[in-house]
Amino acid sequence: MAKKMTIALYTGSFDKLTATGVIINGAVADDMDVEIYVLMMGANAFKKENIGKMENMAELADKKDEFIASLERLKIPTWMDFFKQAKEAGNVKIRICGLAGKIWNGTELEHFNGLPEDICGIGEYIASTQTADVNLFI
């Protein structure tokens, strides 16, 4: 049976979302199943109207311009492209926490950016972590 990584994705900060994108691609390369549970600020970043926005960098805001310039110079994919790439290459499931969705007026899947396939409750995340080999909070 494939090993499994679960991620509680709290952040809506695009630098951490980019790091998450790199991690899940690495996990998929290792044939791990990945389940991402999008909480709180994360659900905001996954809203449809926020596609392509790189304004939210919660930490080290003074490094933001340099970071964005480097991403462009090095032709690093956007965090959404990293997530798409991981989904195409392996078994990656993305679920929005129902409560977090409500906070940002995202009550239906169509309110989001196309990456999530479900809206779920916290019980599902907790249950899934019981059989996870790796569990991250980002």
Binding site: N25, V28, A29, I76
Partner: peptide, 14 residues
């Protein structure tokens, strides 16, 4: 060449 991590790893796996 020209892709950054994890690009080469993903291309190798594919």
């Amino acid at each position: 060449r020209g892709t950054a991590c994890p690009g080469p790893l993903m291309a190798t796996k594919k």
